[in-house]
């Protein structure tokens, strides 16, 4: 009996080793925590098509929307076999959820095995083209020291990129900024265009589609972004060195065989820069920037540290 069990153990080890070597032999599932038809979903679908070319097996996108992708991540991290046949879309919410004051998540960035980053969208501040109270970033900050300004943000607290920029303006520059929480990027945009709030904190992807509506005054990127060559960075203006962006990439859960992680990272990296995939992403206003493995992890950790400092939260 003992021998028999041993034999099973050995065979199963061999088989699983063989699994890792043969991987992939069956369709792969990409978990997208956002609804079908949205920008995140379309990004996943373009990537899936490119990844199929790399891996030679079908890549199926499965939408499991709910609670800002946490329904999907919960199931993915705790209830999905780590056999390398399921991976997930991750963005900054996955890292900041743990530090959300009003609704903290158990999971941190370390629960994910980060594979590759597909898109980075830096944040900008825009004012209305006919704005007279201030004309650039510097005068906006000056004006806000004495006048309370309103800005809309998708959600509140550390999980929100907009609210974090507002917090930074308050903390670093002494500006008085009041955040109006709304439900998403299109609503922050509506609030700004309709004149209900004083300025806009948005992603580059949001302001390049209808440029006549925005006068962009600063971009929170390390250097000027290609889509907005005339907009200075905060560093250039000599007003600070705040960086803020949203990032979209892909991850495994812990426990996937290292060989598979390596193969997947390589395949994803090739798929992300696939010309057709890049073209489709650019059409949606999304800026493709590939980071993989350690680089990707460093990128997210830098943003984590920045925001934790801004909100005075301990890691």
């Amino acid at each position: 009996m003992k021998k028999f069990l041993c034999a099973i153990l050995v065979v199963s080890c061999l088989v699983s080793g063989a699994f890792a070597a043969d991987w992939p032999t069956k369709p792969i599932t990409l978990i997208c925590g956002y609804g079908a038809g949205g920008s995140s979903d379309l990004g996943c679908r373009y990537l899936a098509a490119a990844l199929e070319k790399q891996l030679g097996v079908p890549v199926v996108v499965e939408n499991r929307p709910g609670s800002g992708s946490w329904v999907a991540w919960n199931r993915f991290l705790h209830n999905t076999p780590a056999d390398g046949y399921t991976f997930a879309l991750v963005n900054l919410s996955a890292i900041f959820g743990h530090y959300d004051e009003s609704n903290p998540r158990k999971e941190t960035i370390d629960d994910f095995v980060l594979l590759a980053n597909q898109a980075i969208d830096y944040q900008v501040i825009a004012i209305r083209p006919d704005e007279t109270r201030f004309t650039d970033y510097k005068s906006l900050l000056e004006y806000a020291k004495t006048h309370e300004l309103l800005v809309a943000a998708a959600s509140t607290g550390i999980t929100s990129g907009e609210a974090s920029v507002a917090k930074m303006m308050e903390k670093v520059h002494g500006a008085k900024v009041v955040v109006v929480p709304v439900s998403g990027a299109s609503e922050t945009n509506t609030m700004f265009i309709s004149g209900n709030v004083d300025f806009l904190i948005a992603n580059v992807g949001d302001v390049i589609l209808n440029p006549e509506n925005y006068k962009n005054v600063v971009v929170f990127a390390p250097k000027r972004v290609a889509q907005l060559p005339d907009v200075p960075t905060e560093v250039e203006l000599g007003l600070g060195n705040y960086l803020s962006f949203s990032a979209r990439g892909y991850a495994y859960m812990k426990g996937v065989a290292p060989e598979i992680v390596e193969k997947m990272t390589a395949a994803l990296s090739a798929a992300i820069v696939d010309p057709e995939c890049v073209e489709n992403m650019n059409k949606m206003g999304v800026n493709v920037e590939l980071y993989s493995g350690k680089e990707y992890s460093d990128l997210l950790h830098s943003q984590l540290k920045q925001r934790l400092d801004t909100w005075d939260v301990k890691e």
Partner: peptide, 18 residues
């Protein structure tokens, strides 16, 4: 205005950009 006011409109926006 390019401002989708509903879930359907947001999905149509994606279709238009595509």
């Amino acid at each position: 205005l390019g401002l989708p006011g509903s879930a359907v409109a947001a999905i149509l926006l994606g279709g238009m950009l595509m």
